[in-house]
């Protein structure tokens, strides 16, 4: 699977209700170091109810200038959330379906 298969596809819950689009895929480098870097493990997908277009970097909490741009993009992406890999039931070019008891987490990057 490649990232482009995933970005921008619909995300639905277990009943088929549309929740938004995949706007990003989050990874963590937390395994034991391999040769140079450790493995990049998929943490989950960031779901945006409105648009899968880029957040232009304003998904990070410490980036908020110039103020009007940051406000505009945050407003376009309001209601975005992170769903962990464990809560994904099906994933592919036709979209992502979540498990029935999924948890939505805040998607903002702390730093």
């Amino acid at each position: 699977m490649i990232l482009n298969d995933l970005l921008g596809t619909d995300v639905v819950d277990s009943t088929g209700q549309r929740l938004g689009e995949v706007s990003d895929v989050r990874f963590a480098l937390d395994a034991a170091p391999a040769q140079l870097l450790s493995r990049a493990r998929m943490v989950g997908v960031v779901v945006c109810p409105r648009t899968a277009t880029s957040f232009l970097g304003y998904e990070r909490m410490d980036v908020n200038q110039p103020w009007p741009l940051a406000q505009l993009l945050r407003w376009r992406h309001r209601g975005s959330f992170l769903v962990l890999w464990e809560d994904i039931a099906v994933m592919g070019p036709d979209g992502v379906r979540l498990r029935s008891e999924f948890t939505a987490y805040e998607s903002t990057l702390p730093r």
């Binding site: 232009l56 970097g57 410490d62 980036v63 200038q65 110039p66 103020w67 009007p68 741009l69």
Partner: peptide, 25 residues
């Protein structure tokens, strides 16, 4: 250019000042 000149990952402490941002906007 304006967005990245405000991005601490690129610029560290050399991000744009407030006045520059207002005029640039």
């Amino acid at each position: 250019i304006l967005i990245v000149a405000n991005d601490p990952q690129y610029m560290g402490k050399h991000v744009n000042g407030r006045a520059v941002n207002i005029v640039a906007f």
